[in-house]
Write a protein that binds this DNA or RNA. Structure first.
Length: 642
RNA sequence: GCCCAGAUAGCUCAGUUGGCAGAGCACCCCCUUGGUAAGGGGGAGGUCACGAGUUCGAAUCUCGUUCUGGGCUCCA
């Protein structure tokens, strides 16, 4: 498949980088060097540990190669010839494996530029002098073939464009993006804090951030009430056996916090002289009774005999809940249900804990404790389609209200080659069909991705990009035919017989933490008035109007608006500047004129000076803006930013 | 978890070959009483991430630990 002109430039840069690499480090063993969405990289196996100084050296060598104006020449060869070439250039270590990947019926080609030749399908620019604007950016580790078990190679990232201007623009864009980073804005605007002494990946919501979260929760709760959901509350922990029944333990053991064992049980087991390994084995083990139950319900050997231990050896504990489903299931199961009750929709802002690997943590977007705007729907099989649609429309309402337009939809299907999925194939087929049909109604393009399903069912995810281009899954809707079986859920149908309900898991935000992180970047900190921690800043021009300003502050607070008064001993310009830096949507300038006329001079963060209006008129206007959850106007062209 | 880089005041950062811990902003006080993005002066603020080692002497050199950033792997 031919590449786009930009891809050709970037891919050719990979080859030029490899050429430079071999000139500087002749013993480098090359793996692969493809173009990416934002540039290119080359993976290399090298004894020498590359440093940023090396990047400078390599880049200089690349410039030289570009100036040498080397031609890129394609050579098609037979497989035997290919092996010979690879051996001749001493690149057997990875290239022979890459050669073996090429299907028998595909042409094998090499590209040569100057002294460098590389196994490559192409395509390339004709001459290296076409490469005028490139830059090496960073060094990273990357596993060979993306497999953790393989050797970690050194990956050199770079970017390239057709012109120097485009490259410069891209680099400025990167700088600009850093200013929107939720980790920076979170600190500057005092939205959240992560403290080493509390723990990695555990968010402390400071007062400002808490206001945003609270407003979002109110917004969602309002929508849920309209759509017939019931609010529930459940504890943060549950017994291990609950998760053995659901199948989450020990299946996801590595990504869960360790179980909490009661003191007495711990003392007893220590007295018995149990090793740590033995204790873990006892925690993993199940009773014969549970095994029989689950295997009967699922109709196959879901729990194998080796996990069963005599009751005397079993050890139960509590787990920090990694998900809310089992708790909600127990609420559903606590009462008999008629088909007339369905669907039952149980919603909770439920906090869950997951043991993410330390290297995966990132600000608010990847954390170890987070609160899902979770709900579980229990419905009949006939209702699944309509309920999935309802969930999707909720996600759309939320995204529209917040002006989130730049997202993609992913329908996660099971990977036919994997056995990690539970449940009968025909149920999977039905559920996947329901998701596909529902996604079609969204009116936005979606991709079907095998292998992206949850282990209990297919799902529809809403994925957005953060400021540095990383994708994050936010909203999700998942169909589940599995957990109702494992927990033996039922309802009584019109035929007076027991039927199995279908479950739908859904979280339109995904998690409050990740969603807020993405939202901070989406708005760049310029939140709409309804979300702004501080909606109005009162700025008195002099102390002479301080009494009027204080009375006005009291008035605004009484109207349930979030306002503060800047009593600093500064000039007006400085106070305005501070309000702008704090990203307050409205600044009210108060001087003698305003005090005498019971009015305010309004300055909008987005639109600048809006002139004088009566206090009553302003309050009414702002309250309307807040209650309709209006989006902020596009910010005016930034003046001199700090 | 793995690879690379980093950690100095609340924030952004400087700190030379090892020799008294620095600046700007923010904070507090004083002067200034003003009309839409920075008036002026003063003050306070530090276990240089933590722990060892080398040295007469360590923010600076070495080792270890923790955390952060960029990747990789993972993400129910």
């Amino acid at each position: 498949m031919p590449m786009t002109p930009l891809e050709e430039i970037r891919h050719s840069c990979s080859h030029v980088l490899a050429t430079a690499l071999l000139r500087v480090f002749p013993d480098a063993k090359l793996d692969i060097g493809p173009p990416t969405d934002t540039g290119f990289y080359y993976d290399v196996d090298l004894e020498h540990k590359l440093t940023t100084d090396d990047l400078t050296k390599l880049e200089a060598e690349m410039k030289k190669i570009a100036d040498e104006n080397q031609g890129f020449q394609r050579k098609e060869v037979s497989r035997d010839e290919a092996i010979e070439i690879i051996k001749k250039i001493g690149q057997e270590r990875y290239k022979l494996g890459r050669l073996a990947d090429i299907p028998a019926d595909e042409k094998i080609s090499f590209y040569q530029n100057g002294e460098f030749i590389d196994l490559c399908a192409g395509t390339h620019v004709r001459y290296s002098s076409k490469l005028k604007a490139f830059k090496l950016l960073s060094i990273a580790g990357a596993y060979h073939r993306g497999d953790e078990k393989n050797k970690q190679l050194q990956r050199i990232y770079g970017t390239a464009f057709a012109s120097k201007e485009e490259l410069a623009n891209y680099l400025t864009q990167l700088e600009q993006a850093k200013l929107r980073d939720h980790r920076k804005l979170g600190r500057d605007l005092k939205l959240f804090h992560i403290d080493d002494d509390v723990g990695q990946g555990l968010i402390l919501w400071t007062p400002n951030g808490s206001i945003i979260r609270q407003e979002l929760q109110t917004f969602i709760s309002d929508e849920l009430r309209k759509q017939g959901y019931s609010q529930v509350f459940t504890p943060h922990i549950g017994k291990l056996e609950l998760y053995k029944t659901s199948g989450h333990f020990p299946y996801y053991k590595e990504s869960q916090f360790s179980p909490v064992v009661e003191n007495e049980a711990l003392a007893r087991i220590t007295q018995e002289g149990c090793s740590c390994g033995e204790m873990m084995a006892r925690l993993d083990a199940v009773s014969g009774h549970l095994r029989d139950q689950i295997n009967a319900r699922t109709g196959r050997e879901t729990i194998t005999p080796d996990r069963v231990r005599p009751d005397a050896q079993l050890l139960d504990g509590f787990m920090l809940k990694p998900m809310n489903c089992p708790h909600h299931i127990k609420i559903f199961a606590s009462q008999p249900h008629s088909y007339r009750d369905l669907p039952v929709r149980l919603a909770e802002f439920g906090t869950v804990y997951r043991w993410e690997q330390s290297g995966e943590l990132s600000g608010m977007t990847r954390v170890r404790g987070f609160t899902q705007d979770d709900a579980h729907l229990f419905c009949t099989e006939e209702q699944v389609g309509a309920e999935v649609l309802g969930c999707l429309s909720l996600v759309k309402i939320i995204f529209n209200t917040l002006g989130l337009q730049d997202y993609r939809v992913r329908v996660g299907l099971r990977d036919p080659d994997s056995n990690k999925y539970t449940g009968a194939a025909e149920n999977w087929d039905k559920a996947e069909a329901a998701c596909r049909e529902a996604a079609k109604t969204l009116g936005v393009p979606f991709t079907e991705e095998p292998g992206e399903a949850a282990f209990y069912g297919p799902k529809i995810d809403f994925v957005v990009k953060d400021v540095i281009g990383r994708e994050w899954q936010l909203g999700t809707v998942q169909v589940d035919y599995n957990l109702p079986v494992r927990f033996d859920l039922s309802y009584i149908g019109a035929d007076n017989a027991a039927h199995r309900p279908v479950m739908i898991h859904r979280a339109p935000f995904g998690s409050m933490e990740r969603f807020c992180g993405v939202l901070i970047e989406h708005f760049g900190g310029d939140f709409p008035a309804w979300l702004s921690p501080e909606q109005v800043r009162l700025v008195p021009i002099s102390e002479k109007v301080i009494d009027y300003s204080r009375a006005l502050l009291a008035r605004l607070k009484a109207e349930n608006l979030r306002a503060t008064l800047d009593e600093h001993n500064d000039k007006l310009g400085a106070k305005i500047r501070r309000a702008e830096i704090d990203k307050v949507p409205y600044t009210l300038v108060i001087g003698q004129k305003e005090a005498e006329a019971n009015s305010v001079s309004v300055r909008s963060r987005a639109r600048g000076d809006e002139g004088v209006m009566t206090t009553d008129a302003y309050v009414a206007k702002l309250k309307a803006e807040v209650s309709t959850r209006a989006l902020p106007d596009k910010k005016k062209a930034p003046a001199e930013q700090p």
